[in-house]
Measured scan of single mutants.
Amino acid sequence: HYVEVNGKKIQATSAEEAEKIAKKFAKIYNATVLDLGNYYKVT
């Protein structure tokens, strides 16, 4: 599981952790979290 933010991949140990990381970055960048199955993308 990982999160992609601005083209950078951030490794996460679980889907739950990946979701938390994605939501945190989405809040910082006022962005949207896309759940793409095996990873989250912040756009």
Rank of each mutant, 00 (worst) to 15 (best):
Y40W: 14
E4C: 14
G37Q: 05
N38R: 08
I21W: 08
K24M: 15
V33S: 01
I10A: 01
D35I: 14
E19S: 10
Y2R: 01
A18G: 01
A18H: 00
K23H: 13
V42Y: 01
A15Y: 08
H1N: 07
E17H: 13
K23F: 11
A31K: 03
D35S: 09
I28M: 14
D35C: 11
E19G: 08
Y40V: 04
K23D: 09
L34M: 10
Y40L: 10
H1W: 15
A26K: 06
I10Y: 12
Y40H: 05
I10T: 01
K8A: 09
G37V: 07
Y2F: 09
N30Y: 05
K41W: 06
D35R: 14
E19K: 13
A18L: 02
K27H: 12
N6I: 05
E4K: 04
N38G: 15
N6C: 15
A12N: 01
D35H: 15
N38I: 09
Y29S: 05
T43N: 09
T43C: 12
K27G: 09
Y29I: 06
A12W: 02
Y39T: 06
N38W: 12
E16L: 12
I21R: 01
G7I: 01
L36N: 07
E16Q: 11
Y2V: 07
T13Q: 13
V42F: 01
N38Y: 13
A26W: 05
K20R: 14
T43W: 11
T43D: 10
V42I: 10
A15L: 14
E4V: 12
Y39E: 04
Y39A: 06
A22N: 00
F25G: 01
I21P: 00
Y40N: 02
K8S: 09
K27F: 13
K41G: 03
A18P: 00
T13A: 13
A31W: 09
H1G: 03
E4S: 05
N6R: 08
A22I: 03
K9R: 13
Q11G: 10
V33A: 04
A22R: 00
T43K: 07
A18C: 08
S14C: 08
V5D: 00
K27T: 12
K27M: 14
N6S: 06
Y2L: 04
L34S: 07
G7L: 03
V3D: 00
K20C: 12
K8Y: 14
A15F: 08
V42A: 02
A31M: 14
K41Y: 09
I28W: 14
V3H: 01
Q11W: 15
L36E: 07
N6A: 09
